[in-house]
């Protein structure tokens, strides 16, 4: 089972993701509330997979994705998006996002995405 870092400014979103992923046997190794904090925690924790919200204050998810991928080309980062963020999704693909999770969250879909990337 994977060690996962959650990066999302919304406590509610992190809580829902934690419940879904822990329910599938994964371990949440850390929670960051913006991109900047996410980069620091990534370097410190070296998770198997990171979920990264796109819209966040201080530093958004796209910038954090870009910086983490520059530091570690093997990083697996799944972007968390609200539906309708088409432009941001294309940008995330360009910078090496491994996959996407859309809100509202569908537990089965999330588990499939994470398991596919971490097995």
């Amino acid at each position: 089972m994977a060690r996962i870092l959650l990066v999302d400014d919304s406590r509610t979103s992190r809580k829902i993701l934690r419940t879904i992923l822990e329910g599938d046997g994964h371990t949440i190794v850390g929670e960051a509330t913006n991109g900047e904090e996410g980069i620091e925690m990534y370097l410190d924790l070296k998770p198997d997979l990171t979920t990264m919200d796109i819209t966040m204050p201080v530093m958004d998810g796209i910038e954090a994705l870009k910086q983490i991928r520059n530091l570690d080309a093997n990083s697996k980062i799944v972007m968390v998006t609200a539906a309708g963020q088409r432009g941001k999704m294309l940008e995330a693909v360009k910078y090496g996002a491994a996959d996407f999770i859309a809100k509202p969250f569908e537990p089965d879909y999330i588990v499939n995405v994470v398991n596919k990337l971490t097995k």
Partner: peptide, 8 residues
């Protein structure tokens, strides 16, 4: 945020 995403 979720509703707005669906609207967008």
């Amino acid at each position: 945020n979720c509703v707005n995403g669906l609207f967008a």
